[in-house]
Design a protein around this nucleic acid. Sequence first.
DNA 1: TTGTATGCGTTATCAT
DNA 2: ATGATAACGCATACAA
Lengths: 340, 340
Amino acid sequence: MGTKPTLHEVAATAGVSLASASRALTGRSASPEMVRKVRTAAKRIGYLPDATARSLRLGGHRQVVFAVDDIGNPNYVQMLRAIEAELGETTRISVSSTGRRPDQTVELVRMLSMGAGDGLIISPLRVTPALRQAIADTVVPVVVIGTLHSDLGVDNVFVDSSVAVGMVVDHLVEIGRTRIGVINGPGNTNPGAARRAGFAAAVERHALVRTEALQITAADFTVGAGVDAAEHLLAATLDSGIPIDAIVCANDLIAIGAISAARRRGLRVPDDLAVTGIDDTELAALYSPPLTSVSLQSERRGGIAARMLSERFADPSRPPRRETVDATLVIRASTIGEAA
Amino acid sequence: MGTKPTLHEVAATAGVSLASASRALTGRSASPEMVRKVRTAAKRIGYLPDATARSLRLGGHRQVVFAVDDIGNPNYVQMLRAIEAELGETTRISVSSTGRRPDQTVELVRMLSMGAGDGLIISPLRVTPALRQAIADTVVPVVVIGTLHSDLGVDNVFVDSSVAVGMVVDHLVEIGRTRIGVINGPGNTNPGAARRAGFAAAVERHALVRTEALQITAADFTVGAGVDAAEHLLAATLDSGIPIDAIVCANDLIAIGAISAARRRGLRVPDDLAVTGIDDTELAALYSPPLTSVSLQSERRGGIAARMLSERFADPSRPPRRETVDATLVIRASTIGEAA
DNA sequence: TTGTATGCGTTATCAT
DNA sequence: ATGATAACGCATACAA
């Protein structure tokens, strides 16, 4: 009883042939009597058709998996939309939110080798040695959206988010901000590391104040983490007599959290404090004040990744490619106020 | 060339047996020489393993499809998260964004009968006769999150969004708003119809002004549609000398759009105009001003739907159930200002 | 209309 | 270590 009933057992229970049972359920050509017998038998033993077997027999569609750390991040939703648009008709896309546990991503890649899907698009926050190894070992095509330090022989979509931070700082300096703080994402993530480097370079370039107190790390790329980090940052800088006039945030969600925290302290944005995000997610344009951000072209990256994957399906021997997209600064009211 | 190479052809090309080819690729027990031969042969003819066949042989996991109109709506993202949490380990979840085309949903349900998945969770904006029929005909388990007018013999998670509108209007009346406008979603959607009815009932109950000019329909449940609708509504009411002091919106996204439009006209929220949403999505708490909204408990509904599905997998003969969750009002600054 | 037999692409069992 | 073959669960061409 614990085992899943098959069509075979339905046929046996109904006392008919396997073929008749199949036809009775799919409703091809079967007598009313046959349909009745089979359907009741199926109900009785609790039969449910097996999608995999059907799909094999029918020549089912391809299945690709899109794995991200947090599907709640609008950034990934944008990618997903583009991916769906690119290969939606012909392919089933399943999204897997690996939830910050890097080993889960590794697990996923391994599962793929075991038939869980025909292809993988992955946008990992961290690329651990284990993940690198898993990717290298996998037979099924993998496209990585993000930073790939060594060459793994897989297709790759890249955007340099360190220059993104540079663009933001340049802009802030241009509008006269000099004491610029930063709320970065976790340092052990690829985006975190890149943005930290970008900020350091920009500070150097503009000869800005360089204090440890101006740099803080959020626990996460989420709004909640942004609130917490901003509170610490504001408290630390104000208490030590180093008031800041701008905060560069590692992404839009953190920036929104930072604005909330700043407001709660009575600070006006951008008059007292300019705040910037990264990703230029839909929220950025809608938030009030609208958020100055840097577009990393998530939709475009998703679309490119999807196209790379389908091109690899078409020609598996094609050498791995790497495509790069450019970051573009989008200036809004959170830095310059109501300009319109 | 046009056909997909199988393991069989790899074996033939390498001049080895099928079994050896399989082992060489999965790396079980094979001589280095064998591995080399097979791998090069596979590369040469462009072999890619078939996930479906593997999955069948290996006893693959279950696949359920989550179908919604627009995965960009945070509301559905919340559901997805809950669904993943409930049956994530054991089941592959693929999300299908049917993009406002109702017939595409019907198509999807039919595909399911043909092996595209083992189960379906669906949260449709519209339940057309065709969809109703497709659901009734399907052998695979379907759980519907939403309104189901007739009894289709499927599991159902329900929340009465007409009472949600009622709660909002009650609240507005309580704080002294009397000229209340409404921006509804499309009237030919289930949520649209329910919310319209709820508003009509509330207007009756409180003996509020009842003019057609106070009611308007957004083209969509999106921010953009909210902006457009609000502009029309504000223009119409102001021009005709009927200034309104509150807008009830069909969901949070529309509400955010409405606030933007109001601000652009120089209106202060909530001093000049109170605005409310529905769904209590994450944005509601984060927006400024934070949005008064009604929680429809999307996470909870997603979780319940997932549990219903897995219970049906366990016992297909279980009679269909219907579970109802309650709407709860969440009061924030967009109606009462900075109360804290 | 119904039953028999074969194959979808892969892996596991059993010999060799 | 390798090869021949059965089996995964289902749908269909064919024969009856």
